[in-house]
Amino acid sequence: MPSAAGQTLRKVLAQSQKELLGDWLQGQLAASTLRSDLMKENELREQSRELLALLQTATQNGSLERIDGTDWTAVREFLARVSRSRAQQGFSSSDTATFVFSLKEPLFARLRADLGNDAQALADELWATGYLLDRLGLYTTEMYVKGREEVISRQQREMMELSTPVVQLWENILALPLIGTLDSERTQVVMESLLQKIVETGASIAIIDITGVPTVDTLVAQHLLKTVAAARLMGADCIISGIRPQIAQTIVHLGVNLSDVTTKASLADAFSIALKRTDANLSRYSGAAT
């Protein structure tokens, strides 16, 4: 039985590929789900053609019930690529799955034309084909989600980098203006990029300005202290500036000991003390700027 089902599908894919492609494209282009704003017609044509060709090869030898075998590798890879690129182009997950599901209509029509008189065989064939396309459609959705996850994690990384700009204020003086809520992971990234920048620039003082940080919890306070300690091990001093009154209260209530750390009310105060400590030669520096 299972070997019989799929025979017509194989035949249709092998012999009527051109007609199938024509019908399928027509259906896709007419559908209300078409996203001509996101994708050009010839790109859609190319993808449809490629999938049909790959399906033909896969169905020749491969099982129709399982798509995880080696016969289906090329199809899977193709669908993964299409899904990911569509995820990045901004298609929704149903738009993307529809690409595969929309093949049902032209394919079923061909099967019906071929097996019109044999109701039993047609039912078997439709079941096998439907099952296969459902599998492929679900796989597409899965890959789409993966693609989205990649987009999300890339954006997270980018945001992380954007939100931790280490800037050089003066010769030997770095500043790290922190803005927004600090969670443990972000503080860790901040810490690493600050220490890395200290090595790169050879700075001897780093100012961590937390004016833009609304709250500090114990974990974050401890991370800040660890940053200061790590910088000290490397031979650089840290100054923490811009501590808001509420944060000062929290820090004391939490029992976090900041007594070993230089703290200043504002970034300007911190900068001025940093200039004094590094013995900056202001006239030379301003002279060089002109």
Binding site: M191, E192, K226
Partner: peptide, 26 residues
């Protein structure tokens, strides 16, 4: 001199602050 960032972070996490040792970048 020359403690690398990754080493410095690890030392702090380990609980070692090299008390009484002076440090410099290079």
């Amino acid at each position: 001199v020359g403690i690398q960032p990754a080493v410095a972070i690890t030392l702090v996490e380990l609980g070692l602050s090299l008390e009484g040792v002076r440090t410099a970048l290079n």
